[in-house]
Amino acid sequence: MEIGNFWVYFAARPLFWIVVTMIAFLVATWINRKAGGTALLHPVFVSMLMIIGLLILTKTDYNTYFEGAQFIHFLLGPATVALAVPLYDHLARIRRLLLPILVTCITGSVFAAATALAVGIAMDGDSRLLLSLAPKSVTSPIAIGISEQIGGYPSLSAGLALLTGIIGCLAAPLVFKLLKLKSETAMGFSLGLSAHGFGTAYAMQTSALAGAFAGLAMGLTGVFSSLLLPLLVRLFGI
């Protein structure tokens, strides 16, 4: 069998791209650990670059890749539901802080989208691009839904949310030092609010408490953004 045919056979199988995604992630995790765990080489970012490189080299389009990778993507749904478990574990503390949580979350969700839009408008961005930027602090599966609703490019929003997640993990240690922040709940909450799943994963490394508050912030930001962003976008007149 010619090597070309061999490739065509395998590349068409969904299984192949699942395997590629998982191997890329393991290799990227290993690279990240070797590099001392820096957020600049975030495992997701490195895997993305490796997979995009492979797709370009083999002239495979994204749809073919996604036929396999969708099975991994699908798990984002149940994983989001699963965040109810750490939330339940820290329910007592959440109840006590309910008012600060709600006030910070509503302010933060609107602020995150408004600042992103303001910078975009100041630089005279195209309106569909701006609309795709608006849900950038919302976790990808929800960002897709919001983007669809307000008229952005859904898959671009998902990607921009990922970049936001990486930026958030890079910026967080600096910001916390600058503010001399001691409260683990505030660290977790701000991470989950501004950098969704990435921030949550990052906060989990600090402590389970920070992780639970990050998960809470991520979920609530998703809820409030779904409700408020359509209104905000209208307010900005985009």
């Binding site: 370009i56 991994i72 993507h73 671009l156």
Partner: peptide, 19 residues
């Protein structure tokens, strides 16, 4: 699922290549 949350973001992230 929560422990491996970041793996689940990769398929959507690769979608940036379309743009």
């Amino acid at each position: 699922l929560i422990r491996h949350l970041s793996l689940l973001f990769i398929p959507a992230g690769v979608g940036l290549m379309v743009f």
